[in-house]
Amino acid sequence: MTTATRSPSDVDEPPAARRSGRARRRSGRTDPAFYWMVVPAFVLFFVFHTIPVLQGVFYSLTDYAGYGDWRFVGLENYGYIFGDARIRDSYLFTFRFAVLSTVLTNVVALAIAVGLNARIRFRTTLRGIFFLPQVMSILVLGYIFNYLFSTTLPYLGQKLGSETFSTSILADEDLAWIAIVVFAVWQATAFAVILYLAGLQTIPTELYEAASIDGAGRWRQFRHITFPLIAAFFTINMVLSFKNFLQVFDHIIPLTAGGPGTSTESISMVIYRGGFQGGDFAYQTANAVLFFLVIVAFSLFQLRILRRREMEA
């Protein structure tokens, strides 16, 4: 006569618990405890994120100055935005800056990542060094770059006889944006390098060995093996970089503070200055809502285009 064997969990659990657990597994239902574990995070997110966002959308339909009384004005604020020259110029500057910085960041980061992924000495140490800009304060780094562009670069320009760089480019309306792009690309490259290195780790070395046997050089290997296989990481980096650069604020404050004049004023700076310092709270809230929709639209457009390219690759 044979006796059924029971697992240790069956011995430790009461019969009622075993029956209820088996019933849940048979019915495919999730234990309610898992839902209760999510409740605290959901409440915090709803209170500190969702409610303020909904309040912002509501205030964008009023003439609220951030204090005192207010009245409902509908879409009047949104109508004024499209005729505001300062906001239009800030959008143009921000998009030019974001497009150029995104391209440069990904080109530089991909080149560094491919180089660090090669069999070179001290590559682990070099990875840590390249990641340092990501963990340091942007404002601190910004003031360091401010000193470089205001003092060091003009000194070198005078020694080399360059009239353009003999004075601080931060005071030049036509050149100040270059300093912001250089600083932003240098700081953002660190995170992009880490993502590309993670993608390169997923490529089997056998593919490169087979390509080398077939006579493929490094450029052909990169074009036909490396880049297609890290297409998903390229998509992530492009979307994140463009989104972050559209929201540029910290990089501008220590370098130019939006100047000279308003030549390097980003959308985020206009929203901050007008909403919290200029008394146009509702007006700039409408600008923030519009800016949010623009970022979402461009992010979705990027994902659609880049994912299509992934499938074709």
Rank of each mutant, 00 (worst) to 15 (best):
R24S: 09
P15D: 07
V182Q: 00
L92F: 07
F72G: 06
A282W: 09
G66N: 01
F245H: 08
S90H: 06
N106R: 02
N287S: 06
V135F: 14
E206K: 05
I267T: 13
L290T: 14
D214R: 05
L246G: 08
I213F: 07
H224A: 07
D12E: 15
V47Y: 14
I252R: 03
D84E: 11
L153C: 04
F72M: 08
N287R: 09
V289L: 08
A176L: 07
F48W: 13
T164Y: 09
V181K: 02
V182M: 08
A257F: 06
V53G: 03
R6Y: 14
A297I: 10
L54E: 09
G199K: 13
G259H: 03
Y208P: 03
D89V: 00
F281M: 12
I267S: 10
N117K: 03
A118P: 02
W219A: 05
G161T: 08
S60W: 05
R123Y: 06
A210G: 05
A16E: 10
R308D: 10
E310S: 01
G157M: 07
I112M: 10
S263W: 00
N77R: 01
H224F: 11
D214G: 05
Y155A: 14
W177Q: 05
G66K: 01
A176W: 02
V193C: 04
N117G: 13
Y78H: 12
F122E: 00
A231F: 06
F130L: 09
L126F: 15
N77Y: 00
M269I: 15
T30F: 13
L200V: 07
G56F: 10
V47L: 15
R119D: 13
F131M: 12
V11I: 13
A176M: 04
L148A: 08
S299Q: 08
G128L: 03
F298P: 02
E209Q: 13
D84V: 09
S9Q: 11
F149C: 14
A211D: 11
R19K: 10
G261K: 03
S27I: 06
V182L: 15
L104A: 11
F58Y: 13
I295W: 15
V294Y: 07
R218S: 11
G274F: 07
F222M: 10
S299F: 05
T94C: 05
F82K: 04
Q158V: 06
I295V: 15
A232L: 06
L126H: 10
G217Y: 15
S20N: 08
T167S: 15
K159G: 12
F97R: 08
V140R: 11
S27A: 14
I305H: 09
A184M: 13
A216G: 01
L92Q: 12
M136R: 09
L61V: 07
G279N: 12
A65D: 10
Y283A: 04
N106F: 01
T164C: 06
F298C: 07
Y64P: 03
